[in-house]
Amino acid sequence: MNWFRLNRTLHRDIGYFCISFTLVFAVSGLALNHVRDINPNYIVERAEAEVSLTLQASDAEINAYLLNAFNLDTSVKASYWESPSRYKLFLEQGHTITLNLNMQRAVYEAITPRPIIPALNRLHLNEVRQKWVVFSDVYAVLLIYLAVSALFMVKGKYSALSWRRGWLVLLGTAIPLAYMWL
């Protein structure tokens, strides 16, 4: 049996199988890496407005004022006094207006679910549970195989085990090690 050829064949075919898995984890990984900067699940659009309201205004008056301030023609689902100076107005689709009487400022937030990325994140974070964890584990094992088998894909001067290209393997090993120990 030609082990070199078998390894290349397995590496190729397992690689094909792993393409979509890799894209799922890579794309969601990018999104989750930057979760502090960009909400991965929703596009949140904000608008602010200066207001002139007092505690003496009724809830109905405040609602009408706020809708007018943001030029909104929508129905009010609910309202809530979070504190004596902070009032929330809930609109359709989960949009909200938050009024701060102390600051005399209102903030309108419109939310739109992002396409695709939340579904990828749910897979990455194993939020779907069920049997996904089995496929996720299989993928992890296959990735280990792909990594190790890559060392034996090429013979000669461009082999991963030669100095000419081996430094790339060493660099890829050194970076995580540095973060583990420093």
Binding site: A78, P113, L125, E127
Partner: peptide
């Protein structure tokens, strides 16, 4: 716990 239930933002007001 993260992932046990995922409440959507459009639940606000309901």
């Amino acid at each position: 716990q993260d992932g046990d239930m995922v409440f959507p933002m459009h639940a606000k007001g309901r």
